[in-house]
Design a protein around this nucleic acid. Structure first.
Length: 865
RNA sequence: GGGUGUAUAGCUCAGUUGGUUAGAGCGCUACGUUCACAUCGUAGAGGUCAUAGGUUCGAGUCCUAUUACACCCACCA
């Protein structure tokens, strides 16, 4: 059914009705469908950011997607076949965490699968979490992500994002797994991936390794503890060592001071004794110690922080790992292995009191013990210090030695920076941020996570005769077999019965970092495209928030280069954040998140889009509802002005005339046509510079000018049936419908479809961006007429306002001062001036002058009663 | 400490390659309309363009320094 039959344009403006109508119409017409037959040069390909569906849908999404959608809609109107897929990021830790809370369950890989288990949402999960099998847990993840995706889809449709809903993918889908695994195997083949046993940043809650990009620093309260370290052979001397983490005493491997520090020079080479545990450790000189920090001398432990790790690596000292994967102190038997002590029974007695405790409790207990023994030299001094956290975690990260898969990114940093330079960044300074991040990388990319819901590594390990895995001889899957799940699938050359048996095999149980999948979204999107598409990397554009330059942007650029030897996209659009009125970033925990749906209901989708499109790319913007109100007013005005024009046009015989342009003959109408051409040119240039905000401003200004001035001026003539005025109004409405289409697609469609002079069946969004050639024949060289007339009208209005009288008050006299040429022009629109100003016969006088102005305005004021 | 931005009316923001009395919307005040307009229109008040220097005939616009704020990174004994 055609759009037009479903509606009547006599109603009041009803945004919800318009929005529903448009959505149905666009779906039916497949307005945003990608045409796979389009050649590459006529295609505009977008690497859409797949939203994390387990997260909250907030106003920031709306802004970012709208800003991109405006630009994408412009490209479509320029005749491009737009490839605008939609993906859902549903794998990884955020989903697991949400599933755990939502259903109050936890994954325990040792629990057997229960095929009758149905997860149920638990409102107040006070009960302990029910432990379920890995497979049950993954099924629950799939279930919930499907629901979450619907929430996003509804909102995105409501906002009118011109996504192709037939091209969807999920980051946990089969293709995503296959492509991620293939990318991994390709990097293996290229020698860029290795499995390494090393101290890794570890989240004790999630019990998984974490990559550098996922870390954030948080300021936390802590205490400095001044501890007494005796010196072997010098009973009357001791060292004062300040530490915030006394629980690491049993893991101390050395004490270091700066080589130039005269206070400690006499002790270098001697041995310090760790209190309580009586561990002999060397006193060493090291550049990384700072003289004026703390007491200038510090203890090195395995591993208190990243500096400890770095120092340990070049020290050849043994590891004393005391923190377990669960964040508790591991059971250590003092006196065995690296854990030497001068007083083994005492060390054991001390350690027994803290073994098994979580880090914080162990710290408190040790402080107590140190106080009793007199090794705590002063009261703990409170300080605030920065501690590394997993960005989604709540406990400080620990360094835990474990085997992980690493991608070598450090040896190619320069290459990634150069690739970044091949990409056009909007705004351009975002490239500096990218380069700063790449330059600052100091760890290779740890891509393995000890979690469940994600892409498995296509890897098995052979077991030796004792049943121990040989990690140095991993068995990689053949690419043809992908996707594989090594915990289910059997490696080539083995039988399933050999799983876990001596001389058999075992599957890698880790999953990949979610970015290992997100970094191949162009490839995944291409796999989701119809067969025979002419798509290839680089895509035309990717858009994203500036917070993920370090993750999504970097990893995608890196993978595109490593896997495919290209850049992933030609342009990177980086949008800013939405800040609350106190200039704080909106976040769920602060309770300042605004729900987009309420805003759409209040201001209409077009109104909210208007707000988003007014904000420039890359700039963090204050959440400002009054701007949405402005948008709503604009849209409502568009509706009412169009309605008014259509009433006029429908009374004219010209309504049947599709080719109305030749009827535009009056000089003022031609001058107006010229103003329209100027606006179109300005908006087009702005769009070409990706400055959609400037394009909107130009269109909006001209539209208000139309309503306030031109429409008022020609109203009377148009009412009288003058075909030039009617045709000019038809042109104006046609044009504004298209000019507003990228910004406010709903009202644009409504107006376009409702035109009484055209039986539109195609969507306005399938139309070409206007070309000035369409009405070039009526553009006069005397465009100045419009600019000359409006100040005269303004002066008359001002006089009436000052006289506190109605604008309909008749004018007895008005003198227009202008250059001779302008007077000639103005005379051509004399009747319009008489109409709009309510001039009495003979009121108009002209006088030559250098500039245009009107004065001596005399009104025929109504007699006062 | 390093990097990247930002600083223009009470609020949110425009100000293109330096060029005459610095703009818009919202808010405020006054008046007028209510037969396109759950309104709309017209006008008014309100800014030493963060500060200090400099370049120039001329600087909100270019240069230098300073200050404040935001984000990223480093430091984290």
């Amino acid at each position: 059914m055609a759009y037009k039959e479903k509606r009547s344009f006599d109603d009041k403006y009803q945004p919800a009705d318009i929005e529903a109508r448009c959505q149905a119409f666009w779906d039916e017409q497949k307005v945003y469908a990608y045409n796979p037959d389009a050649p590459a040069e006529a295609t505009y390909s977008v690497d859409t950011p797949p939203p994390t569906v387990s997260g909250s849908l907030h106003i920031g999404h709306i802004m970012g997607y709208t800003q991109a959608d405006v630009k994408i809609r412009y490209q479509r109107m320029c005749g491009k076949s737009v490839f605008n897929p939609i993906g859902w990021d549903d794998n990884g830790l955020p989903t697991e965490r949400r599933v755990q809370n939502y259903y109050n369950i936890a994954c325990n890989p040792h629990v057997p699968y229960d095929k009758n288990f149905v997860p149920v949402h638990v409102e107040n999960n006070k009960e302990p979490r029910k432990e379920v099998s890995r497979q049950n847990f993954i099924e629950a993840c799939h279930m919930l992500t499907k629901e979450d995706e619907k929430v996003f889809e509804n909102m995105f449709r409501r906002m009118g994002f011109s996504l192709d809903w037939d091209i969807q993918y999920t980051t946990i889908g089969k293709d995503s797994i296959r492509i991620s695994q293939a990318s991994f195997l390709d990097l293996v083949k290229k020698g860029m991936v290795s499995s390494v046993e090393a101290p890794t940043m570890w989240d004790v809650d999630f019990q998984s390794a974490i990559a550098q990009a996922e870390i954030e620093d948080r300021e936390v309260d802590g205490f400095f503890h001044d501890l007494r370290f005796n010196i072997q052979g010098e009973p009357d001397k001791f060292l004062t060592i300040a530490t915030t983490r006394p629980e690491f005493l049993p893991a101390c491997i050395a004490v270091v001071a700066h080589p130039d520090d005269e206070r400690y020079q006499p002790y270098f080479g001697k041995t310090a004794i760790v209190p309580l545990f009586n561990i002999p450790v060397p006193i060493l000189a090291s550049e990384h110690a700072e003289k004026d920090k703390g007491t200038g001398i510090l203890m090195v432990c395995t591993f208190g922080d990243a500096a400890d790790v770095a120092w340990w690596k070049q020290s050849h000292l043994p590891v004393k790992q005391i923190i377990g994967r669960d964040g508790r102190l591991m059971p250590i038997v003092y006196g065995e292995g690296a854990f030497v002590s001068l007083d083994v029974p005492k060390a054991r007695a001390c350690y027994d009191q803290i073994a098994g405790l979580p880090v914080k409790k162990a710290r408190a207990k040790l402080v107590e013990m140190l106080q009793e023994s007199g090794d705590l030299l002063s009261q703990p001094r409170p300080i605030k210090h920065m501690v590394k956290f997993y960005e989604k975690g709540s406990q400080p990260l620990e360094f835990v030695s474990s085997r992980q898969w690493f991608v070598d990114i450090l040896s190619h940093k320069q290459k990634w920076i150069e690739r970044g330079q091949e990409i056009q960044w909007f705004p351009p300074y975002m490239r500096s941020r990218y380069e700063a991040w790449v330059n600052g990388l100091n760890q290779n990319w740890c891509i393995s996570r000890q979690r469940f819901f994600g892409v498995p590594f296509p890897v098995w390990y052979p077991l030796d005769a004792q049943g121990n895995p040989n990690y140095d001889a991993p068995i990689f899957a053949d690419e043809a077999r992908l996707p594989v799940d090594p915990t289910v699938d059997t490696p080539t050359g083995y039988t399933e019965s050999q799983r876990g048996q001596p001389n058999g095999f075992v599957g890698d149980t880790d999953i990949m970092d979610t970015w290992a999948t997100s970094s191949v979204t162009p490839q995944i999107a291409m796999a989701a495209a119809p067969k025979g598409s002419h798509l290839s990397m680089p895509f035309d554009m990717r858009y994203m928030g500036h917070d993920i330059i370090r993750t999504w942007a970097f990893y995608t650029i890196m993978k595109a280069d490593a896997n495919a030897g290209t850049i992933p996209w030609k342009q990177a659009h980086v949008n800013g954040f939405v800040l609350d009125p106190d200039r704080k970033k909106m976040s769920k925990s602060k309770g300042n998140v605004i729900t987009p749906i309420a805003l759409v209901e209040t201001y209409s989708a077009d109104g909210v889009r208007y707000w988003a499109a007014r904000n420039k790319l890359g700039i963090d913007t204050l959440f400002e509802e009054t701007v949405m109100g402005q948008g709503k007013k604009l849209v409502m005005k568009m509706y009412n002005a169009s309605k008014f024009v259509m009433n006029i046009v429908s009374a004219s015989p010209l309504a049947q005339q599709a080719d109305y342009v030749p009827y535009i003959k009056e000089p003022l109408d031609k001058a107006w046509a010229c103003k329209l051409a100027q606006t179109l040119a300005g908006a087009t240039v702005a769009f070409q510079n990706s400055d959609y905000a400037a394009a909107l401003e130009a269109v909006e200004m001209r539209f208000w000018d139309f309503c306030d001035n031109y429409l008022e001026i020609v109203k009377a003539r148009a009412y009288a049936g003058d075909t030039s005025a009617v045709a000019s109004l038809m042109l104006t409405i046609d044009l504004f419908a298209k000019l507003f289409a990228p910004f406010c697609p709903f009202i644009a469609e409504e107006v376009y479809q409702a035109r009484c002079w055209a039986n539109a069946t195609d969507s306005v969004h399938a139309q070409r961006w206007p070309q000035v050639e369409e009405w070039a024949s009526v553009i006069s060289e005397n465009a100045d007429l419009y600019d000359a007339l409006t100040p005269v009208v303004a002066e008359i209005r001002k006089t009436k306002t000052m006289a506190n009288t109605s604008q309909k008050t008749p004018v007895k006299n008005v003198r227009i001062l202008a250059p001779a040429k302008q007077i000639e022009l103005l005379k051509q629109a004399e009747q319009d001036l008489v109409n709009v100003g309510s001039l009495l016969p003979g009121a108009l006088h002209y006088e030559e002058a250098d500039t245009i102005m009107a004065d001596q305005v005399e009104l025929e004021l109504p007699k006062k009663e």
